[in-house]
Computed example of a mutant assay.
Amino acid sequence: MIFFILALAVLGCKEDPLPKPKAMLRLEFPKAKYKQLNSECDFTFDSNTASEITAKEDCSMVLDYPMMKGSIYITYKRVDDNLRTLLTDAQKLSYEHTVKADNILEQPFVNDEDKVYGMFYEVTGNAASQSQFYVTDSTDHFVTGSLYFYAKPNYDSIYPASVYLQRDIRRIMESLKWAE
C-alpha cells in the first residue's frame, strides 16, 4: 500500500512538458525630447534631453547616453580651402568599418534653406560605429559625427539603441544651423 501511494505521488505530480515560447528582450527608451543646443560655436542644433553633453574649446563635443552605453562624437572644423580633404577624410572614416560591416547605406542630406549639405552613413553588422555623418555649408563650416557604443559590437544586441540614436543623429542634421 505504501509503495502504491509513493508511486502515485511520484508519477501523479508530473506535468506534461511544454515548449518555451521564443521571446526577444524588449528594450524601451524614453520618448525623445529635444532642446536647441546653444553654444559659442559657429553652429546650433537640437539635442535629446536624455543626453549628457560634454563640450570642448574647439567646438567638438560628446553627446553621452549612459542608459544606452553609447555616445555621439561631434567634431567641428573650419573650411579654409580644404573642403576636398575634409570630405575625403569623413568618407574614408565611414568606410574604415567595411571590414566588420555587413553593409553601409549612404543617405545624402540637403537643406538648401539653411545651407546644410551632407551625408548620413548607416552601418549594419558588428562594426565599431553604427552611424557616421558629416554636414557642411561648403564654404566655412564642416561638422562630422560618429556613433559608438562602449561595448563589444554585437549588432543584434545594440540594434534597438542604435536605431534610437540614429534618429537623434538625423535630428541633429535636420536642425543644424550655422551662426550668422
Rank of each mutant, 00 (worst) to 15 (best):
F29V: 05
V62H: 00
S47V: 11
V123L: 04
D16H: 11
Y95L: 02
A161M: 10
V116L: 00
S129Y: 12
G125Q: 08
M119Q: 10
M68Q: 14
V62T: 12
S60W: 10
G118A: 12
K20S: 12
T44S: 12
L27C: 02
Y159L: 15
A9T: 14
L18C: 01
I72G: 04
F109Q: 06
K31A: 06
A179T: 14
Y134V: 04
H97S: 06
V123H: 00
R78E: 14
N38R: 12
V62L: 04
L86C: 03
F109M: 03
V110R: 15
P21Q: 03
K177F: 05
I72R: 13
V110H: 11
V99E: 04
I158D: 03
K77M: 05
D140N: 11
V10G: 01
A50V: 06
C13L: 13
Y148F: 08
T98K: 15
R167N: 14
E106P: 01
F4E: 05
M61S: 08
Q91F: 06
K33W: 04
L11N: 09
S131A: 14
I158L: 12
K20V: 14
Q91D: 09
S47R: 14
D114A: 14
T54G: 01
S51P: 01
Q166S: 11
N48A: 09
V143W: 02
K152R: 10
A55Q: 13
Y150N: 15
K77C: 00
L37M: 09
K100I: 01
L86I: 07
P21F: 04
D81T: 08
D81K: 15
K77A: 12
N154V: 15
A179W: 00
P66M: 06
S60P: 00
E52Q: 08
V116W: 04
A179H: 12
K20I: 15
C13I: 14
W178H: 07
S51D: 03
Y34L: 07
K100F: 03
L27Q: 12
I169M: 15
F43G: 02
Y73H: 02
P66H: 14
T49F: 01
C59E: 01
L87R: 10
K177W: 03
D102A: 11
D80I: 10
L83E: 09
D168R: 05
N38G: 08
K100W: 02
E28G: 00
S51N: 03
V143Q: 04
I158T: 12
N103M: 13
K152A: 07
Y117R: 08
D112F: 08
W178M: 08
A32D: 01
V99Q: 04
Y164K: 11
A9W: 09
S47Y: 09
I104V: 10
L147Y: 00
L37E: 06
G145P: 08
G70N: 09
V62F: 07
A50F: 04
S175G: 03
D16M: 13
R78I: 00
F3M: 07
L6W: 11
M24E: 08
V163T: 15
Y148A: 05
S146N: 09
V163I: 15
Y117K: 13
I74S: 01
G70T: 10
I169F: 09
L37C: 05
Q107N: 10
Q107F: 02
K69S: 09
